Each structure stands twice: as C-alpha cells, then as structure tokens.
Simulated assay, not measured.
Amino acid sequence: MTFRVIDTETCGLDAGVVEIASLDLSDAGISNVMSDLVNPGRPIGLDAMAIHHITEEMVAISNEETLLSSLKFGKYRGQTLAQIALQDPDYLHWLLANLRDLSADLRYSLNFYLNGA
C-alpha cells in the first residue's frame, strides 16, 4: 500500500499557501518527492517566515518564463525534458499540440528543448 503525504506552509494563521510539498510512502520507501513554492498574493507574516524561512523574494512572481527541467505528469513523470526531447520528441510535440492548459513556463520549456537548445 502506498500513502501520499502532503504538507503546506502558509503566510500565517489567516491562510495563504506559500509552499506545497508531497511524497509517496510505501514498503519500498519514499518516492515521488516534490515541493513547489507558491506566490500567495499577500504578505508573508514575520512569525511564519521565522518558522519556515520562506521569504517574499523566494515567492516573488517574475514576468519572465522559467525554464523547467522535468515533467511532473504523464508517462515521463520525473524525467528531464532534455532526455525526453532526445528519446521521444513526438511526445513533447503532442503535448504542445493537444494540451490547451499548458502553463506558459511548460510551453516555453517544451519549445526550448525541441528546438535543440
């Protein structure tokens, strides 16, 4: 049996998530570890920062696209985009052509790796 453990860090007692983390726990051990920072759209309380050490700068939104290194979903989950572009570029082309809700960062990253960067 596998259990998924999920943890969040917040801005303080009034909510506002700044980090989401999870892992899968089974008899085989720990797998599928992930952690993502989230811009809460509100200030992070000093008391909260003292506990989790996540600062405003760490969650600041940038207008520049971010180059992602791996997929977090699908049949190649956890593999690097560079590896997938070499082994199965048709899959990345399929993602670009068929998934309408790709984030700007993922769309940018797929194009980056497919165009031989």
Rank of each mutant, 00 (worst) to 15 (best):
R100Q: 13
M34T: 14
L37E: 01
D36R: 15
S31E: 11
I30F: 07
I84Y: 04
M49N: 02
E56A: 10
M49K: 15
K75G: 00
E9H: 09
P89G: 01
I84H: 00
N39G: 03
M58L: 10
R4G: 03
H52W: 08
G78I: 06
A50M: 11
L81N: 00
A60P: 01
L67K: 12
R100A: 13
D27V: 12
F73V: 07
H52N: 11
S69P: 06
L23K: 08
Y108R: 06
Q83M: 06
V5S: 02
S62P: 08
L67S: 04
R4L: 01
H53S: 05
T8W: 11
L96K: 05
T10C: 07
H53E: 05
Y113N: 03
E56F: 07
R42G: 00
A82E: 07
D14A: 14
F3I: 15
E56W: 09
A97W: 03
R42Y: 00
E9V: 12
P89M: 09
L37N: 04
V17T: 14
D14V: 09
D90L: 15
P40S: 07
I54G: 03
L92W: 08
I44C: 02
I54K: 11
I20L: 15
V33H: 04
A82I: 06
G78Y: 03
G116M: 04
R107Q: 13
